[in-house]
Design a protein around this nucleic acid. Structure first.
Lengths: 361, 361
DNA sequence: TTGAAAGCGGTACCAC
DNA sequence: GTGGTACCGCTTTCAA
């Protein structure tokens, strides 16, 4: 279609002048500028990003590397990033690393970023050594979200602290039999968060002289459906915890669902706590530890822009965002009961509401 | 970093030979080829997409234009598209049109696609005439998802049929007082789906001699939270419908939540039906009309690839995917009741489960 | 089979 | 203030 040459011809000037006039840099006489602008508009001229990028060496794109993209947390982070970048004329290059199973992922390669993006934002996946060297060779600014990596600025919450808050709430409510939902992937290089949260959970328990037996640990894939499936099996057992702490709200939803299907009252028979404050957490009255996911995305976008504009802060910043305990209706003190006399009843319809009663009843 | 010239030097051949060897086209002697490959690997050479694209005129990118990106439906479609495109070495350029309010959006511009993508997939937004001419001027293949546009292949469900199924279920269950959740944006050029679904709902009702008064129509923004807010006001009224049909599962979630907070039994006091089969619909036992969203994304990606490879089918295909009624626990026949004697009770805790009882009790 | 060279569409330096 | 022109890195004739 229209090239800069066409505009030059139409405006009766040289391509150099068109380039200057269009970008508003350098001095161009107002009259010439107007003629050029008119011609450009007339011809629907838009500069070819390929050509611009070839000569300038920059792309105005930022690679966003995400382990899953079709999950609330990641989509929300990306959305935050995108809004900030767009304000400054940058766009997002989506690099989805989703593999075939929960604990595999695609590698970060040079060709997904090289000359395609001016910087990279990595969501939650700790790069392998080989991936690190790719990133270093690329020589572009990197910002991480969700965990801290040496040498790169980061935006995140303190996963251990968040989980400690959730676990402590369970203990403070009087629970002593506490289950956990949230697998740690086989490879820690896949995701750090599952590891940190689980470790923190175990730590807080043991600090309080408690422990969570393996059969109360739901090894699910961080989806609601996966958690529901495992929780269903848990609730089939004669004895199960009075509270389940889930490493994410989505898993917590699955646990709540399984409880209801078993005719169990939440929180009467079992309390459920999540982490995230998922967009549906309030709707489903889930007690959780809130993090502002989109804000983290926006901050990561901003840090990237700063780095791109050479406004690198002298020291590498590690921005740890606050979390906030949101106590809602899914938690309460344990109901005094033995495994025999608990109020379980047959669910009359799949998923029908269970019992009536306030948490304290 | 490394350019084709560096590789040529290292391999002791010309850049032309490097180019040929690396892409496996044309004849290159095996020995030369090996030397080039070795040098390229050694130097971590990756061709600059900008340069390649400048000369070839193609980018191996496909623009995906979406009204919102951080919503389950759209993220899932994009995920499906991305998986297919990636297989053939194409990548996704995300163009998020999200505006500041539910019924505004950013325009589709030439500069977001021009020389950046080889084709465009448009999700659910009917282009304005001016946007159509941009797309036509660009001369790239276009595929639409979610609705049909003249001249372009499309992948979608029949929104009217889907809503008719949902509405008919309500009627078949015996409901006569039926409410609706799902605003139609002020501008029909924003989204077509809300319009189609609402119209179909109204149509089926009137075919059955029924109607939905304005005060039972929840004008919410297609989010769970928005629907919950409006449903809360509805349930505050002395008289409200025995069934609410929501134009999306997310809104249905909001309605269910509001019902529970009002101490209402679902489906005893009020039935709820959605459309989509959202990833959490089964978990929350929501009756809905299922569509396979990711499959639609994959098909759209495939159609795009076909067009890109010149395998254009002679006639423009309009692929209408099947939907499937999923009857779950959120629906049942209306309980015989007047507005005075219904089983409403004070919610003991926000969101506490309501009553016990099978749908038929 | 391989190399030289002419672009692809811009930008930026250097004259005028 | 404006025009000429040498690249940016790669692909693709055209010759050798």
């Amino acid at each position: 279609m229209t090239t800069i040459g066409d505009v030059a011809k139409a405006a009766g000037v040289s391509v150099a002048t068109v380039s200057r006039a269009l970008r508003g840099v350098d001095r161009v006489s107002p009259r010439t500028r107007d003629r050029v602008l008119a011609a450009a508009t007339e011809l629907h001229y838009v500069a070819s990003p390929a050509a611009t990028s070839l000569v300038s060496g920059r792309t105005r794109g930022v690679g966003v590397i995400t382990p899953y993209f079709n999950r609330w947390f990641f989509a929300t982070v990306v959305s935050g990033i995108e809004k900030i970048l767009r304000e400054e004329g940058y766009h997002v290059l989506l690099c989805d690393l989703e593999g075939h199973t929960f604990d595999t992922r695609l590698p970060i390669t040079q060709s997904m970023l090289w000359k395609r993006a001016d910087g990279a934002i990595i969501l939650n996946v700790p790069p392998l050594p080989s991936e690190r060297s790719v990133l270093e060779r690329l020589g572009m600014p990197v910002v991480t979200v969700g965990n801290q990596q040496p040498g790169w600025p980061s935006v995140r919450i303190d996963d251990r602290a968040a989980m400690a808050i959730a676990t402590q709430l369970a203990i403070d409510l009087g629970h002593r039999e506490i289950g956990y939902a949230g697998t740690v992937p086989a490879s820690i290089t896949h995701l750090q968060t599952p590891f940190d949260r689980r470790e923190s959970f175990t730590q807080v328990l043991s600090d309080n002289g408690l422990e969570c037996p393996p059969e109360w640990t739901l090894e699910c894939d961080w989806t609601a459906a996966g958690a529901a499936e495992h929780a269903n099996r848990l609730f089939d057992r004669p004895h199960f915890p009075t509270c389940i702490v889930a490493a994410s709200d989505e898993m917590a939803f699955g646990v709540m669902s399984a409880a209801r299907r078993h005719g169990l009252d939440v929180p009467g028979d079992v309390s459920v706590i999540g982490i995230d404050d998922h967009v549906h957490a309030e709707i489903f009255d889930l007690t959780t530890v809130r993090q502002d996911v989109e804000a983290q995305g926006r901050r990561a976008g901003r840090l990237m822009l700063d780095a791109l504009h050479g406004r690198d802060s002298a020291n590498i910043i590690d921005e740890v965002h606050d979390v906030q305990l949101m106590v809602r209706g899914s938690t309460g003190p344990p109901r005094r009961r033995s495994s025999r006399t608990r109020s379980r009843r047959a669910a009359t319809a799949v998923g029908a509401p269970a019992t009536v009663g306030s948490p304290a009843s």
